[in-house]
């Protein structure tokens, strides 16, 4: 995949898709989107970088080890659950500290809380999991290519 166009495009596309994935994740509670979709989209962004610029560039772009990202994600889902447990005594109960319910039933404020933390955990697990396998597969395929010639 030594295409100049693809390489150049991927440099531009990576931040673009990443911003899009975070946006998709953020609006997921009220519009189509969410952690699963956002995570997949982010993973596609890194897959694109990997195909265009190679494994090392993709690893560098991701910055953290994919396994660590997935682990942090799992931690976020658990923390998101515990937050509800500590606030209301029910594991995974939604806590929205920045949202106020108005008397007429509508609400104002920032949609930030335990559920978003939980969904962000899902985002990270999907991103980390997919990238982890992708990098490993690419690594193995690239390096074993030479060993196996016999």
């Amino acid at each position: 995949m030594n295409s100049l166009i693809l390489r150049t495009a991927s440099r531009l596309l990576l931040p673009l898709i990443l911003v899009l994935s975070v946006f998709v994740f953020w609006r997921g509670h009220n519009e189509p989107g969410g952690g699963f979709i956002g995570g997949l989209l982010a993973a596609i962004a890194f897959a694109l970088v990997e195909k265009a610029q190679g494994l090392e560039a993709a690893r560098k772009a991701l910055h953290f080890r994919p396994q660590s990202i997935a682990a942090v994600g799992l931690g976020c889902t658990v923390l998101g659950g515990l937050w509800g447990a500590f606030a209301y005594g029910y594991f995974l109960k939604g806590v929205w500290p920045l949202i106020e319910k108005l008397p007429d039933g509508s609400k104002t404020g920032l949609p930030f809380g335990s559920i978003m933390l939980f969904d962000f955990g899902v985002f990270l697990v999907v991103l980390g999991g997919v990238c982890g396998i992708l990098f490993a597969l690419e690594d193995v395929v690239a390096n074993e290519r030479d060993d196996k010639e016999d």
């Binding site: 969410g34 594991f91 939604g94 559920i115 969904d119």
Partner: peptide, 18 residues
């Protein structure tokens, strides 16, 4: 407090599943 029912089911109502 969510308008996307699918996502609310995923991360809230059936969060343990997820």
């Amino acid at each position: 407090l969510g308008h996307n029912i699918v996502n609310v089911i995923l991360v809230d109502f059936r969060g343990l599943d997820t």
